[in-house]
Every structure is written in structure tokens, then in C-alpha cells.
Write a protein that binds this DNA or RNA. Structure first.
Lengths: 120, 120
DNA sequence: GGTGAATATAGTGATATAGTGATGTCTGGA
DNA sequence: TCCAGACATCACTATATCACTATATTCACC
């Protein structure tokens, strides 16, 4: 229901509520992180790394992701640049692991709500 | 710690864990929704609409978002096309409201974790 | 030093997205 | 019927992203 005033409806211009809006600075900082994670292949990589719990090599990730090596390597770099993943070299292998667990909430959310088909 | 085998380390190729990975079909369906929401202005719009609880007009949203009318209108359309927002015309006003609350988890997550500065 | 496996990067064309200004459409009222 | 306000869409430029191929780097081992 809309708060009708008189004959001609005029919506309130300035409604000040209790809770303040999240500041744009925060949104601008966080949005690209989420946006970058919200990519099928990168989500798959995160899902895999979370499931395995221990760090995994690029080859293992490539196999799990069922994608080309170069492509996976690029995605790993993106996630690393965002601070989501960490990498550690061990011999000729590079082990990746999740160092910023906040993004895992995305996966949790997808597991809960993602299975449902969209109504529209 | 890595499960070392012998002198030459060779990581397991096929580790089958309990929990299956989220299927790519789901990821491909959900990713664009998250990706579209993960935009500063759109997050601001969602934050505003969630705070106000009742539907708000485009003008109100434009004012709250502190952005141009055309730009806001485009974002509203994107969010509507994704099934996140619903719109209802009343006279010359169009009221937008959130009809797909799943995305609000994003905002919740940002409020919890977004304030912290990234370490790197 | 040479070789091969593991990983990273460069380069590229196709496509998507952001934001802006101008214009179109709808609606209510004089 | 004309006007003004609310909203949507168009046209356009700039920029970002995607996924691919080819090539480079790094390391272990001989």
C-alpha cells in the first residue's frame, strides 16, 4: 500500500529511515570481487577448492574444471589478483587455495537457492 | 601438508569426495544473476529498496542512487529482466520492488564482510 | 646445457557492458 | 488537444571481458 496524500499522489521525496545505505565506496570496492567470482568456471574452481579443503595444483583444477589449461590459468590469476586465492609453488607444481573465505558465501547461497528454477 | 608418495611428487589425479560439485548447468544459470547484481549502482538500488521495504518510484530511486535517470532506468530494467525486481504502474509512476529475495543475501554478506579492508 | 612436464603470459577477435545525451511513450491535468 | 512530468528506450563511444592459440617461463631430472 502506498501512503496516499490527497487527490493527486505525490510520493515522499526524502524519507529518512533508521538504517543507512551501504556507502558507495564499499559497494564499488566489493562489487568487482563478487562480479569476478560470479563466472561459471571460476565458481566451479572455488567450489572444487572448497570441497577438497587442501590446496590443489593447476593440473588438478584443470581436470576438475574440464576446461583448457590456459583458460583455467587465467581464471586462477584473476581470482588471485582479487585476493580470493593464494598460490604456493612446490617444485614444478603450483598449489592454489582459498584465502578469502567470504566468497564461499556465494557458493553456499547457490547451493541453497540455485537449484530452484527461476519462475519467470 | 601434501600427501607425498615417493621421491618424485605426483598429485592424485582423481580424488572422489563425498559432496559433488555444483553442476555447471546451475552455475551457468546463476552466475549471470549474481554478476548482474554485483554492480555498485544496482547494489545501491537493491539496498535502498530493501531498506524502504515498500515499493518505490523511479524518481525516488534516482534520488537515492544519485545517478542519472536514464542510467537508473536501465539498471532497473536489467534487474527486472533477471527476475530480481518487479514493477507496477500506478498513474504516471512506476513502483519497483524486490520480488526475488535471494539476492539480498549479497547485501547481507557485504554488510558483514564488506566493511573490512582487503589485506592485500 | 637439453628435455619434457607444469604453469603463465601474450596476442587476438568476438562479444558484452557502462554511461551519456537525445528522443520516445505514457499519463494526468488545464 | 496541448503540455509537463515520469519513465523507457535508442544511439553511440569507450572500455571490459571471454575464450582461444601460440608462445614463454619455470622447474626437475638426466
Amino acid at each position: 500500500m502506498i501512503t496516499q496524500t490527497k487527490g493527486a499522489f505525490k510520493p515522499n521525496k526524502t524519507v529518512i529511515n533508521n538504517r543507512p545505505l551501504i556507502c558507495m565506496e564499499t559497494l564499488e570496492r566489493v562489487a568487482p570481487v563478487i562480479r569476478n567470482a560470479a563466472h561459471p568456471l571460476r565458481l566451479r574452481i572455488l567450489d572444487y577448492l572448497q570441497r577438497e579443503r587442501d590446496p590443489r595444483t593447476v593440473s588438478q583444477i584443470v581436470e576438475a574444471a574440464e576446461a583448457g589449461q590456459a583458460l583455467v590459468s587465467q581464471q586462477l590469476r584473476i581470482l588471485k589478483d582479487q585476493g580470493v586465492l593464494g598460490a604456493r609453488r612446490e617444485g614444478s607444481y603450483v598449489f592454489y587455495s582459498i584465502v578469502e573465505p567470504s566468497v564461499l558465501l556465494l557458493l553456499e547461497c547457490i547451493r541453497k537457492h540455485g537449484a530452484q528454477q527461476r519462475s519467470g
